[in-house]
Structures are given as C-alpha cells and as structure tokens.
Write a protein that binds this DNA or RNA. Structure first.
Length: 425
RNA sequence: GUGGGUGUCGCCUAGCGGCAAGGCGCCAGGUUGUGGCCCUGGAGACCGGGGGUUCGAAUCCCCUCACCCACCCCA
C-alpha cells in the first residue's frame, strides 16, 4: 500500500471513468448551450465572506462543512462548497447587470465539503449547474427546470421524480416561521435534540429532519403553501401551470425547504424513483435575496446544481447507459525495429498525426513478436512497421490489424492517403 | 460526530496456527523481421501498521490506521 494516498473523500478519476465524466459534462454543456446558456468559470477559492454571508449560519455548509484557511497574506479564504454564490459574486463584480437581462450562465467543476464520505458523497465533488440571473418571472424558474430535465433526458435518466415547493419570500417565511414555532412549541420535549436546536436557530429545518420525519408534530405541521402571500401564490400557480404546459410531471412536496438561506419562492429537486440514501441527483431554487446579501442591488435569480458523480452513478445503473460512451479510438501504432527504424517510425507517426490520426509510438527495443502483440492489444486499426530496410528506402510497412493482417509497403509521403483509403475499405 | 463491515502482488480471489497459492494484467521466450488462440518462463506481497499469545501467527487476542456502508446532512 502506498504511503501517500489521496485525501479522504477525494478520488483519482482514472481514464476509464473519465470517459463517463466527460460524457456527462459534454452532454450537459451541449443542452445548456441549446438554451443559450454560457460557460462561466469562477475560482475554486473565494473570499470566505462570499459563502458566509449567503448560505446562512445555521446551514451545515457554513457551520461544519467548509474548508477554511488563511493564505500567506492573511486573507480569509474558503474552498467553494457550492456554485451559486461565486457566480453571483462574479455577476456583481463584472457589472453584468448592465448586460441584456437575464444573464444565462452555466458552470461545472469541483466543490468541497468537509463531510463524512459515503456512497455518492465526497469531500471533493463535482457539480454542473446553471444560473439565470436578472429575471424574477416564474417563466425563468420553469426554463431552468426544463433545461435540467432535458439534460437528464439526454443522459438517459428518465426515471427521475421532480419534487417542487414554494417557500415564498423572506416576509412570508417569517410569518410562516412564527406559525411553525407556535405549532412546535408544545411538542418540544418529544422532538430530537437536533430539532430543538433548530427551533431556536432555523425552525424551517425541523421539517426536513429525517430523525423526526415520523413525528406527529412534523406530520401535522402547517404547510408553507397555506402561508403564501397573494403575490407568492400567483408566482407558484404560474410555475405549476407552465410545468403542466411542458408536460413535466412533478409532485408538490411542502417539506422541501432547502439547506441554504438565500432561497425564495420556487425550490425543487430531482430524485431517482427508487430512492436510496444519497440519491438527490440535482436540486435548485430561486434566490432573489442572494445578490443583496453580498452587497449588490436587489437582483432576482434562479438556478440549480447537479452532482456529476451522482449522475455517473445513476447512468451506470441504467440499462445500456454506459455503452453510449465511446472511448477515443487509436488509429495506428508504430513498430520500430533497430535504431534507423525508430527514426523512420517517429517521422511516420508525425505525418499521420498531422493528417489527424491518433498514433501511439511503439516501444523501441522489443522483438517484432512482442511489438505486434502489444499492437494488437492496443486496439489500433493499423500497425506502421519500419526497420533499417524501410528507413533506407523511405518507406514503411502498413499492416492491417483488424482482419487477416494484409501488409503493403508504402512510401512515407503516401502513408496518410493510403491509410485513409484502407480505412474506407 | 455515532454505529456496522472490510483490509493477502497493479486488479480479483484462495489460504483461517506449520514453507503465502491461483486467475487477470505486465515482461520475456516458443530459431532469421509479423499480432490475436495456445504453450513455457519471469518480475511483482515485510499478508494495512504496532504490540501480545505461541516452539511457530496472514490465521488467535489487544490497540491503531485506512477504506467501504449506514445515521446525520446534502449534490
């Protein structure tokens, strides 16, 4: 066992799995672009304030999961635990409010949460996400949900259930929180310690406590939907109508309240129907208060993020899901014999690569038998063989590896054309 | 933070007090410069680490570490 290992909860993505990763990111990128969303790359490290001011003190992300450190200059920095706050910071910093609104952005990359690792849960995880900033309409909510659903569909994930809720605005939430506190107060003694703490700090989150999920008081708690203002209700109803128009099946789930404080109005998540533990594949919401929280003008926004590892997990589970992922094919491998042959092979490989082919340099110093064995194992369609004889003649032997192994001697300057011809037939 | 499970060549697995085996993969050979199948050989493991019991420990006991799974929480 190697002495030095990858940090806990962080993993090497080896070439085999990387192909699936790229498939997920590539597919999501393609679909996002088809909705006119544009890639934004923000730093993996941000001023800690970006997250401290937005996520809420009681959120798990801030209270126990964030990687915090001071750099050599004394700045307080954080490894980003989520994507929205950084994108919002960039929106503000670069004056994107003066671009045509809304600004449609997508991103993907690593995020960090100091959490106990588990199936589908990592300390370095990767997310793909989109943000639509500068549009307060329910249409924007549904646009990003539709985009999300289309990505999942393109990845072959059709058995996901969409759960939606509205948590209103900050004002309606305060009223609802009062009602909740009134409701839970008589039951405090029978609730879990965690819920009692949340009663003080963030009473909403008692609702998504798994520990107390079966508790009578939790099940009979008033629904936030009954406390929405007229405006909230109009937004919420419109979202439902638009989802219906797009034939998007969804379930209303009043228990979704989101782990982060900046959410308002519509919140949702996508989960596999066969719900396991760490199963949420993607979740999103509207965050109209976020940009104000980091010092900008009141700016509406809505977006979601999806865990790439969780998508990969679900794609692997889908019948035939992985088979659609092609690994890069090798066109040719060289078989160098003798020291002049090595030089001839290097020239031949350069010629073929210039013509757009993928070519592996064969290891020099091997017997022809060994070289052809590894050529066969490489999956290359052709072997390009050159020894001292070919080097002197300015030619190479072009051998087919896929079939019976026909071989022709070809002048170096005709090699690329000849390979194209043979690849046809 | 709390539980449970698992640690034997790069990967998979056998061995469960008496010389650490096999498969895959890797390297080489099977008479001159020709692959796949087959055959032969080789390299590669202080049996996660430390301590103890024993004539003798991969094997039994204790401690520790790592990974996995679950709770919690989330993507």
């Amino acid at each position: 066992m190697a002495e030095l290992r990858a940090p806990r909860g962080m993993h090497d993505l080896l070439p085999d799995d990387e192909a699936l990763f790229e498939h997920v990111v590539g597919t999501a990128t393609r679909v996002a672009r088809s909705f006119d969303y544009h890639l934004i790359r923000t730093p993996i490290v941000e001023d800690a304030g970006v997250f401290l001011r937005t996520a809420g003190d009681e959120s798990d992300i801030v209270s126990k999961e964030m990687y915090l450190f001071e750099d050599r200059g004394g700045d307080r920095l954080a490894l980003r635990p989520e994507g929205t706050a950084g994108v919002a910071r960039a929106y503000l910093e670069h004056g994107m409010a003066s671009r045509p609104q809304p600004v449609r952005l997508f991103y993907w990359g690593p995020f960090f949460r100091y959490d106990r690792p588990q199936a589908g849960r990592y300390r370095q995880l990767h997310q793909f996400g989109v943000e639509c900033i500068g549009d307060a309409s329910p249409e924007a909510d549904v646009e990003v949900i539709e985009l999300q659903r289309e990505i999942y569909r393109a990845l072959g994930l059709t058995d996901l259930v969409l759960r939606v809720n509205s948590i209103g605005t900050a004002a309606t939430r305060r009223a609802y929180e009062d009602a909740l506190r009134k409701h839970f107060e008589p039951h405090l003694a029978t609730l879990s310690a965690d819920s009692r703490r949340r009663f003080q700090t963030n009473v909403l989150r008692i609702l998504d406590s798994k520990e107390d999920a079966g508790h009578e008081a939790v099940r009979t708690a008033p629904s936030i939907l009954e406390h929405l203002s007229v405006e909230d209700m109009a937004h919420w109803d419109r979202v439902g109508a638009l989802l219906d128009d797009l034939d998007m099946a969804y379930e209303v789930d009043p228990r979704i309240v989101r782990g982060l404080d900046y959410y308002t109005h519509t919140v949702w998540e996508f989960e596999p129907r066969s719900a396991g533990g760490q199963s949420t594949v993607g979740a999103g919401g509207r965050y109209d208060g976020l940009i104000e929280a980091i010092g900008g003008p009141a700016t509406p926004g809505v977006g979601w993020a999806s865990g790439i590892e969780r998508l990969m997990l679900n794609i692997s589970g889908e019948p035939g899901g992985e088979s659609g992922v092609a690994t890069a094919a090798l066109d040719a491998i060289t078989v160098p014999l003798g020291s002049d042959g090595v030089r001839a092979c290097l020239r031949a490989a350069a010629v073929l690569r210039a013509a757009g082919y993928a070519v592996r340099n064969g290891t020099p110093g091997r017997s022809m038998r060994a070289a052809l064995r590894s050529a066969d194992a490489s999956g290359a369609r052709f072997a390009v063989i050159a020894g001292d004889r070919e080097a002197a003649a300015g030619t190479v032997q072009l051998k087919t590896l896929t079939g019976s192994g026909e071989q022709v001697e070809v002048p170096l300057d005709e090699l690329a054309a000849r390979l194209a011809e043979d690849a046809q037939g």
